[in-house]
């Protein structure tokens, strides 16, 4: 999937899933998703893992990769592209 489209897709899904007040354009591609950035927390991290699995059929095999994968929308998109390619 094209990264730009994926970024928009992820932003929409994050806003909807976490009931955020922002618009997709308000979330920067590299803005931290947790704490000082978008403001997600540890419970939301679990929701993101489920989102990856449900919507993109990608399982986060190593939980230690979480902070790196969920750093921003951009890192999430990269992980999805990389693993979707691997799945193909």
């Amino acid at each position: 999937m094209e990264k730009e489209k994926l970024l928009q897709d992820l932003k929409k899904k994050i806003i909807e899933k976490f009931n955020l007040k922002q618009q997709p354009a308000d979330i920067g591609d590299d803005e931290p998703l947790f704490v000082e950035g978008v403001g997600l927390d540890s419970i939301d991290a679990l929701e993101l893992i489920v989102l990856l699995q449900q919507d993109y059929k990608i399982k986060l095999d190593n939980a230690e990769d979480g902070p790196k994968v969920f750093k921003s929308v951009s890192t999430m998109a990269d992980y999805i592209i990389q693993h979707q390619d691997a799945n193909v």
Binding site: I43, L46, E47, V50, Q53, Q54
Partner: peptide, 8 residues
């Protein structure tokens, strides 16, 4: 794949 928020 149950999400935690609704459960909690």
């Amino acid at each position: 794949l149950l999400t935690p928020t609704a459960f909690i």
